[in-house]
């Protein structure tokens, strides 16, 4: 979905996709209280739209039968719930100590250069969004990073061009 369309969604009202509603309802069965499905509901919406538009918050709240502030409180707490539009691919760069000690900063700067963006930004072609992430648990292969669901490491600056090419 285009960024424009998503921005429109964010302001012009929002309805949960029937499949997403069903998925959220299925999640409810795993827990004692509906609030517990909140994180998964946000992830379900995020899988469809790439991010969680503002108007999705009350929609999810209604679906779960909880208050909108409780959902927004959760949505803004967790770092992997995106409350702003992201590109088609999200790059998560591990910035924790083991990667730091194995030249993470060179990798980070190379990404900044290569993509022309800083952390928290999306490339103008809407292809990549760049974010730092907690230790990825790939410390023996630092510096490590993820592109969407794929984990890489160690990644040398020279590998970047070829690596990113795989994500159109």
């Amino acid at each position: 979905m285009s960024e424009q369309a998503d921005k429109t969604l964010a302001t012009d009202g929002f309805e949960l996709h029937p499949d997403d509603r069903a998925a959220i309802q299925a999640e409810l069965g795993h827990f004692e209280q509906p609030q517990a499905a909140c994180i998964e509901a946000l992830k379900i919406v995020q899988r469809r739209h790439g991010w969680v538009p503002d108007a999705a918050i009350p929609a999810i709240a209604r679906e779960l039968g909880v208050g909108p502030a409780a959902v927004e409180g959760v949505a803004t707490f967790y770092s992997l719930i995106f409350r702003q539009p992201v590109g088609r691919h999200v790059i998560l760069v591990c910035d924790s100590s083991s990667c730091y000690l194995t030249d993470y900063e060179m990798l980070r700067d190379a990404l900044f250069d290569h993509l022309g963006i800083q952390y928290g930004q999306t490339t103008p072609d809407n292809r990549f969004t760049l974010l730092p992430v907690c230790c990825l648990g790939a410390c023996d292969s630092g510096p490590a990073m993820m592109i969407d669901d794929d984990t890489y490491g160690p990644v040398a600056p020279k590998d970047l061009a070829e690596l990113l090419e795989g994500y159109s």
């Binding site: 502030a69 803004t76 707490f77 770092s79």
Partner: peptide
């Protein structure tokens, strides 16, 4: 028993307000 005021964000960037 209110439902429209919440704590948002984390670390030293916690925000108390309405969801909109």
């Amino acid at each position: 028993g209110g439902e429209d005021l919440g704590a948002f964000g984390a670390n030293d960037n916690v925000y108390f307000g309405r969801y909109e």
